[in-house]
Amino acid sequence: MEVRTIKVFTTVDNINLHTQVVDMSMTYGQQFGPTYLDGADVTKIKPHNSHEGKTFYVLPNDDTLRVEAFEYYHTTDPSFLGRYMSALNHTKKWKYPQVNGLTSIKWADNNCYLATALLTLQQIELKFNPPALQDAYYRARAGEAANFCALILAYCNKTVGELGDVRETMSYLFQHANLDSCKRVLNVVCKTCGQQQTTLKGVEAVMYMGTLSYEQFKKGVQIPCTCGKQATKYLVQQESPFVMMSAPPAQYELKHGTFTCASEYTGNYQCGHYKHITSKETLYCIDGALLTKSSEYKGPITDVFYKENSYTTTIK
Rank of each mutant, 00 (worst) to 15 (best):
K293L: 09
A115S: 11
K106T: 13
T313P: 08
K7C: 14
A150C: 02
E215D: 14
N129Q: 07
T19M: 10
Y274F: 12
A231H: 01
I6V: 13
F242R: 01
N187A: 11
P130C: 08
E239Y: 09
V21K: 14
S263W: 00
V166W: 03
I301M: 00
T292V: 09
E71D: 13
T103F: 09
L126M: 08
P300K: 08
S25Q: 15
K218S: 02
G33W: 04
V203E: 06
P131S: 03
I277C: 01
K95T: 13
G194V: 01
Q230G: 06
G299W: 00
K280M: 15
K218V: 06
P224D: 12
G164K: 01
L153P: 03
Q98G: 06
G288N: 08
P47I: 06
S279F: 01
T211Y: 05
Q175G: 08
Q20W: 09
Y96L: 05
H18C: 07
M170F: 08
H51P: 02
I45Y: 12
S295L: 13
L283I: 15
L212V: 11
G39W: 07
K233S: 13
D303C: 03
E239Q: 12
T282L: 11
Y155V: 02
P78T: 10
K293V: 10
Q20T: 12
D165W: 02
D303P: 00
F70I: 08
L133M: 06
K229E: 11
S181R: 14
D180I: 05
Q30I: 11
A108S: 13
C156P: 00
S263P: 01
A115N: 06
N157Q: 10
D63R: 07
V243K: 00
T226W: 06
Q122L: 04
Y234S: 07
V21P: 11
Y208C: 09
L173I: 13
N110Y: 00
K54C: 15
T226N: 13
Y214E: 01
M170E: 01
R167G: 01
K158L: 03
N268F: 11
K316I: 14
Q195F: 12
A40S: 13
L88D: 04
Y113L: 02
G267M: 07
Q175F: 06
S246M: 00
I301V: 11
N178V: 04
Y265T: 00
T169V: 12
M207G: 01
T312A: 09
N14Q: 13
K44A: 15
T75Q: 09
V203F: 13
A117I: 07
S263I: 12
T258N: 09
G210L: 01
L17P: 12
T258D: 14
F259N: 00
Y252R: 01
G33R: 05
P60S: 07
S181T: 12
E204G: 10
F305I: 10
P97R: 09
N49L: 14
G194N: 03
T75W: 04
M85V: 07
C182H: 03
R4K: 13
Q238T: 02
R167T: 03
G39Q: 09
G210P: 04
V189H: 13
A69I: 09
Q134H: 10
Y252P: 03
M244S: 00
F128N: 00
A40G: 13
N100S: 14
Y311F: 10
T10P: 06
V3M: 14
A177N: 04
P78K: 11
E71L: 08
R66M: 14
M244G: 00
S25P: 05
N111E: 03
F9K: 11
E204A: 11
N14C: 10
Y155L: 07
G257Y: 00
Y138R: 13
N61M: 12
F128K: 03
V189C: 11
K307P: 14
L179R: 02
T91A: 06
Q98S: 09
E125S: 08
K255N: 08
A150T: 02
T192S: 15
T76E: 09
A289W: 07
S310F: 10
Y84H: 07
Q122I: 05
A247I: 02
T314H: 15
H74G: 09
K218F: 03
K7V: 09
Y137N: 03
Q122W: 04
P97F: 09
F80R: 05
S240M: 00
T27K: 09
E239T: 11
K293F: 09
V221H: 10
L235C: 09
Q197G: 04
G272A: 00
Q175A: 10
A150G: 05
A250L: 08
Y284V: 14
D287T: 07
V206E: 04
T226S: 15
S213R: 03
G39H: 09
D109H: 06
P241K: 09
T10M: 08
Y84V: 05
F9R: 10
I124W: 06
I152Q: 03
T260K: 06
M24A: 15
T169Q: 04
Q196G: 07
Q238V: 02
T282D: 14
D63S: 09
S295G: 12
D41V: 09
C182Y: 06
C112Q: 06
K298P: 05
C261Y: 00
M85P: 05
Y297T: 01
I286W: 00
E264W: 04
K95V: 15
T116S: 09
G257V: 04
T226E: 12
T55G: 07
N147M: 10
T159V: 11
S79Q: 15
L102R: 07
K127A: 11
V67R: 14
G161I: 02
C261F: 01
V304N: 05
V21D: 13
T91E: 05
C112S: 01
A205H: 04
V58P: 05
A108E: 07
K183I: 11
D77G: 06
P241S: 08
C112Y: 03
N14F: 08
H51V: 05
D303I: 03
D38I: 08
Q31Y: 13
R167A: 04
E253Y: 08
A146I: 02
L153F: 09
W94C: 04
N49D: 14
Q31A: 14
T91M: 03
C193I: 02
Y274K: 02
I105N: 07
T232G: 00
K44P: 14
V42C: 15
K46E: 12
L290A: 13
E125G: 11
V160L: 05
E71Y: 07
T258H: 11
N16C: 07
C271H: 11
S279D: 14
K7Q: 15
D109N: 08
T11E: 07
L88A: 05
S213A: 05
G143N: 02
G164R: 05
W107R: 07
D63C: 07
K298V: 15
L179M: 08
P131K: 08
S263M: 07
P300A: 13
G257A: 08
M207A: 07
Y113H: 07
Y274G: 00
N147Y: 10
N157V: 00
Y84K: 05
Y57M: 14
T75V: 11
A262Q: 03
T75C: 09
K191N: 13
Y306Q: 05
K46T: 13
A247D: 04
G267C: 08
K298D: 11
E71A: 11
M24C: 14
Y214N: 02
P47Y: 04
V189R: 09
V243Q: 01
T64L: 11
Q230L: 14
E296L: 13
K229D: 15
C149Y: 05
K316A: 15
E162K: 06
Y311H: 11
G210H: 01
M245K: 00
L88T: 03
I45E: 14
A231R: 02
Y252E: 06
K106G: 15
L81C: 09
N187K: 14
N100P: 05
F242V: 01
W107V: 05
D77W: 05
N100H: 12
A136V: 02
G39R: 05
A205M: 00
V185H: 02
D23M: 12
L133S: 03
T55A: 12
K233T: 11
E2A: 12
F56V: 09
Y138P: 08
A140R: 01
V203Q: 08
P47W: 02
I45H: 11
H276F: 10
M244W: 03
E253K: 06
I152H: 03
E68G: 07
I6Y: 08
E253T: 11
Q222A: 10
P249N: 00
N111Y: 04
N157I: 03
L163C: 15
L200W: 03
V67Y: 12
K7E: 10
D13H: 04
V3D: 14
V12T: 06
G164I: 03
S86W: 07
